[in-house]
């Protein structure tokens, strides 16, 4: 019993520690790539080519003073960043990293991920409310409304993919793309999913919750030191999780580009990592090149464009499957 628990803890650590390291280097990659897009060097002082910068950043946040606002709701205020961080970690339990490399291969993995991402709103909305500050509250309201409304279209898009596969299991979804990746037959859905993923993670061009020009920094203004660090880590881990999900649903997970000689000797988890890197770079690229949306435009896009479009695409796919008798 105790031995099994120990093995499970080691397993969990083998997922979480590389995840946190990759989150740290995600921030470095973001600063470097944005630097080169804007024709400057980016961080290059600490370590070789600035490779130790994220560690120094983490150390700085760790050694700062934790400030607890006197008018805040203290218990909720402390719990909120922990919730965000925990929820961004537990989603990784079901992700298949490679052929047979998966934490737990549950039958309804997609639903699990969807449930976790819908719970993610709580960390943000409680942090905004408990800070007892106008800026934080407005940022939290914006963020929660945005996440809830884009979740609807994400749900329909996921159902489109699940209809094509006939299973909620993530591994089976990847195996079903052996002949062709879903990003080709379901191209419009893929585009909608990625844009919704941008909105879901409060990322540019939909980063209204932390619009620096109007709301200082959104829901996490009152947080300092570790509280802020937990929000930061949670946000970036969510971004990585979203790019993972996009990879699994539309880019064939760990499958190689072509199943011929030079491609299929590369191990499956390296293919998975490369595909995640592609989406991470897309995330950064969009932040560097696109201006911010207005809030009513954002809501219009969510409710009046994506929701009808994804719903009608779902109807289209299911009617095609029904008429050709392809349903599994």
């Amino acid at each position: 019993m105790i031995f099994l628990t120990l093995i499970n803890i080691v397993k969990i650590l083998f997922i979480i520690v590389p995840l946190l390291i990759s989150v740290a280097y995600f921030t470095l990659a973001e600063r470097k790539i944005m630097g080169s897009i804007q024709r400057r060097k980016g961080p290059n002082v600490i370590g070789w080519f600035g490779l130790l910068t994220p560690l120094a950043d983490g150390l700085k946040l760790f050694s700062k003073e934790t400030i607890l606002p006197s008018n805040s709701d203290l218990i909720v205020f402390v719990i909120a960043p922990m919730t965000t961080f925990l929820l961004s970690l537990i989603g990784w339990a079901v992700i298949p990293f490679g052929e047979g490399i998966v934490g737990s291969d549950i039958q309804i993995g997609v639903l699990y991920l969807f449930g976790i991402s819908s719970l993610g709103v709580y960390g943000i909305i409680t942090s905004g409310w408990s800070s007892n500050s106008k800026y934080a509250f407005l940022g939290a309201l914006r963020s929660a409304a945005q996440m809830v409304s884009y979740e609807v279209s994400i749900g329909f898009i996921i159902i489109c993919v699940v209809l094509c596969v006939g299973s909620f299991n993530l591994t089976e979804i990847v195996i079903a793309q052996k002949n062709i990746w879903f990003c080709i037959p379901l191209f419009p859905v893929f585009i909608m999913f990625f844009i919704s993923a941008l909105a879901e993670t409060n990322r540019h061009p939909f980063d209204l919750p932390e619009a620096e020009a109007e709301l200082v920094s959104g829901y996490n203004v009152e947080y300092s030191a570790m509280g802020f660090a937990l929000f930061f880590l949670g946000e970036y881990a969510n971004m990585l999780l979203m790019s993972c999900l996009t990879t699994i649903l539309f880019f064939g997970g760990w499958l190689p580009l072509f199943d011929i000689f030079p491609f299929n000797i590369i191990p499956s988890f390296i293919w998975f990592g490369l595909k995640i890197c592609f989406f991470v770079i897309l995330f950064i690229w969009f932040r560097a090149i696109l201006p911010r949306y207005r809030y009513d435009q954002l809501m219009t896009l969510g409710w009046k464009v994506f929701l009808p479009l994804s719903l009608s695409y779902l109807l289209l796919i299911s009617s095609i499957f029904l008429s050709f008798n392809w349903l599994i």
Partner: peptide
Amino acid sequence: LIFIIIYVGAIAILFLFVVM
């Protein structure tokens, strides 16, 4: 999981919204 997605992820958040 349906319980989480619908009740916790949607309905309770709307409650929170209104109450806040």
